[in-house]
Design a protein around this nucleic acid. Structure first.
Length: 494
RNA sequence: GGUCGCGUGGCCGAGUGGCUAGGCACAGCUCUGCAAAAGCUGCUACUGCGGUUCGAAUCCGCACGCGACCUCCA
């Protein structure tokens, strides 16, 4: 845990497509930026996966002892709709539909987003800046880019001059694109006439009369281009060059490519040292996306009220399900997989309960190697945040715990303490899992259960199994499972 | 069409030159008055065809299948 003593962390850097040792610019500080949501509608499960992936990275960096400044923005400006430049602002469109003020829409879905993050135990970032609060900085950045000769104004809009930039810098290095190929593949869309090249992208857009969200600028009333805010807010809070920038795969091009170009054009420095991209959640092999209509909201997932869902799944089941795959792989959603995750999580949590009540005993035979388990967990996480492998290691510990509970093995007091610390750290702090229901109950229910189970124990002692089974069945009907163990009877709420 | 990636047992999903991941499901056994839980055992896979190698799921080539991005998208 202490810095300098942990083995190195490796992350897959999209820039090089290799696993690289992560070396922060200014340890023990680490700057992490993640592209946040656009708040014009409910987040769907795919969004949750990305934010969960970077939540795990954030938690792991913190575990390693780094002081992380985690910045995740809220896009509340609203960008163009469809593939036509003269489209309607997304947020404005939504506002008209719902008869709401644009900022009311923003507030509503921002609140909803925060609720969802809390539901899945995704930690809040250190700073959550909004695009609308950084218009001055965005305008200033556009001016710097113009001054450097990499942007031009046309009819109240400002465009980034990609060909001019590409003469001096590597445009497309992140996503592996080549300028000539990009040109060949450009679609003919309307509203391109203001651009000198079809590759050019908007830094600032003139607002037409229907556009609700607009601000004054040196080029007239308008709004910022959709790549700009991330460049501005990441470098404002983390520095012109910072450690890690994360986001979903689908943002690699053009969004992240444009971010690099803007920062280099404006300030002459590559903004990001490690680009990390999370992969998509799929349904029947296809990307879950708003535009596909194959996504569902977290609420639907929990209630099970959706045609894709057999039934509801708890937030922690979903979290565990997602953590059982690597962040850089696609993960296919299915009811079967969710149900498997549910059982697995149950087993893991039950083992934690057992671990808490386990008493030390002189180990008969070979002692379980807690140090090796700890090493395996750390190694897995340091290997590009390999949560599935870490979880596999944890289940090795689960078996040891259950064996000890059955009296087949034992832990020394030291090992027991160490194992508890390890499970606490990995299960709760790093994986971010948590108790979903009060399994143990309060003092009153504890007392009541002691009375009831005491009566049942008496019945059993008299071999009055009809009575003891009746008690067990009645409790089961209340959702309480009774388990007769070697050390007496335990119970838990389902 | 271009760029990138993927194809692993009944399901999900790691691994990525030799050392059977793990979870779920299934079967048998142990424990138990019975159950539940747990433990043990079994099920041993890598799309196809070539090639490199002492040895390939892992590297190379080809084929087939699938996906992502190229347009707002996490």
């Amino acid at each position: 845990m202490a810095e300098h003593t942990h083995p190195p962390l490796f992350l897959t850097n999209t820039l090089t497509r290799k696993k690289e040792e992560f070396i922060p610019l200014a340890p023990p500080h680490v700057g992490l930026y993640v592209c946040g949501p656009t708040v014009y509608s409910d987040v769907h499960l795919g969004n949750v996966r990305t934010f969960l992936s970077f939540d795990t990275l954030f938690r792991w960096l913190t575990y390693l002892g780094y002081k992380v400044r985690y910045v995740r923005n809220i896009t509340d400006v609203g960008h163009l709709v469809g593939d036509v430049d003269e489209g309607e602002d997304k947020i404005a469109k939504r506002a008209r539909l719902e008869q709401l003020e644009p900022m009311e829409v923003v507030q509503k879905y921002t609140n909803g987003f925060h609720d969802v993050m809390r539901t899945f135990n995704i930690l809040p970032p250190s700073i959550e800046p909004t695009a609308t609060a950084h218009l001055i900085e965005q305008i200033a950045m556009v001016e710097r880019i113009i001054a450097k000769g990499f942007a031009y104004e046309a009819n109240g809009s400002v465009y980034f001059d990609v060909p001019a930039y590409a003469q001096h810098h590597a445009y497309g290095e992140l996503s592996g694109r080549r300028i000539d190929e990009l040109v060949a593949n450009t679609r003919d869309t309307e509203g391109q006439d203001e651009k000198r090249s079809p590759l050019d992208f908007a830094l600032w857009k003139r607002a037409d009369k229907n556009h609700l969200m607009h601000w004054p600028s040196p080029w007239g009333e308008g709004f910022p281009g959709w790549h700009l805010e991330c460049s501005v807010m990441s470098t404002k809070y983390l520095g012109r060059t910072f450690d890690i920038h994360g986001g979903g795969m689908d943002l690699k091009f053009p969004h992240h490519e444009c971010e690099i170009a803007q920062s280099v054009a404006a300030d002459g420095e590559a903004p990001v040292r490690y680009w990390v991209h999370g992969n998509m959640l799929t349904v029947n092999g296809r990307k879950m996306a708003k535009s596909e209509g194959n996504g569902f909201t977290p609420e639907e997932l929990i209630t099970g009220d959706h045609k894709l869902l057999d039934r509801g799944y708890s937030p922690m089941t979903v979290r565990f399900f997602m953590l059982q795959s690597h962040y850089a792989s696609t993960l296919d959603f299915s009811n079967e997989a969710l149900q498997a995750a549910e059982r697995g999580l149950q087993k893991l949590m039950a083992a934690w309960d057992t671990l808490e009540r386990l008493k030390p005993a002189p180990p008969a035979g070979e002692a379980y190697d807690v140090a090796a388990l700890e090493k395996a967990c750390v190694a897995a996480m340091n290997d590009d945040i390999n949560t599935p492998v870490m979880i596999a290691a944890l289940f090795d510990g689960v078996r040891a715990i259950n064996s000890a509970n059955d009296g087949r093995a034992a832990f020394s007091a030291d090992d027991l303490a160490r194992l508890r610390t390890l499970f606490q750290a990995m299960v709760f702090d790093v994986l971010g899992l948590k108790r979903e229901a009060e399994k143990q109950g309060d003092d009153l229910s504890h007392g009541l259960m002691n009375v009831v189970l005491g009566l049942r124990a008496d019945a059993k002692a008299k071999k009055d199994f009809a009575a003891s089974d009746l008690i067990r069945d009645r409790l089961a009907a209340l959702g309480i499972t009774v388990k007769d163990g070697k050390e007496g009877t335990t119970w838990e709420r389902n």
